Amino acid sequence: MLDAAQEKTFQNDILDKIQSHGWLLGESNKLNKQLVLYPEDVIAFAKAT
């Protein structure tokens, strides 16, 4: 079982890995938790396509 420090390290390793492949890290306060997406990103994507 991981302790809190190990969990944070593990979380940061995952974030570093996905960001190194082009993923963007969003701000949690902008996440629509009901839809599980960032509305601004969806609108920007729709406008760009």
Rank of each mutant, 00 (worst) to 15 (best):
M1Y: 07
M1A: 15
M1I: 02
L2R: 10
D3F: 05
D3T: 08
D3H: 10
A4F: 02
A4L: 10
A4E: 14
A5Q: 11
Q6M: 10
Q6G: 15
E7V: 12
K8T: 08
K8W: 01
T9Y: 01
T9D: 03
F10D: 09
N12S: 12
N12M: 11
D13H: 04
D13E: 11
D13G: 05
I14C: 02
I14V: 13
I14G: 00
L15M: 09
L15F: 06
L15W: 03
D16R: 11
D16E: 13
K17C: 03
K17S: 04
I18M: 08
I18A: 08
Q19Y: 00
Q19L: 12
S20G: 12
H21V: 03
H21Q: 13
H21A: 11
G22V: 05
W23G: 02
W23Q: 05
L24T: 11
L24N: 06
G26Y: 00
E27L: 11
E27G: 06
S28G: 15
S28R: 11
S28N: 13
N29E: 10
N29S: 13
K30H: 07
K30V: 05
K30N: 11
K30W: 00
L31F: 08
L31C: 12
L31G: 07
Q34C: 04
Q34T: 03
L35F: 08
L35T: 14
V36E: 12
V36T: 08
L37N: 14
L37F: 04
L37E: 15
L37H: 12
Y38E: 05
P39H: 07
E40I: 09
V42F: 04
A44E: 10
A44V: 04
A44K: 15
F45V: 04
F45G: 07
A46V: 00
K47L: 09
K47H: 04
K47N: 09
K47M: 05
A48Y: 02
A48C: 03
T49F: 04
